[in-house]
Amino acid sequence: MHTLPLITITASLALLVSGCTLEEVKPWQRNLLAKESMQLIADPSEQLLNQHLYFSKEAASGGEGVGGGGCGCN
């Protein structure tokens, strides 16, 4: 599967391009950043339920936060 590395490279390039255009953002220019859709966690309940789900189906976890109770995970 070569899709993942491709997406990774594309995402990295997007980050780099964005990094090149770093600009001073004044407080009154933050209206879009304050929108719910622009939050780091756009939907907290979806994130929590997904963490539960993938934690019990895959070997990898973490990266987005600390803690979490884990599970018995049959």
Partner: peptide, 13 residues
């Protein structure tokens, strides 16, 4: 915050 429209986050855990 990279711009009024762009945000990036990088975490190591």
């Amino acid at each position: 915050v990279l711009s009024p429209r762009t945000l990036v986050q990088l975490n190591y855990s």
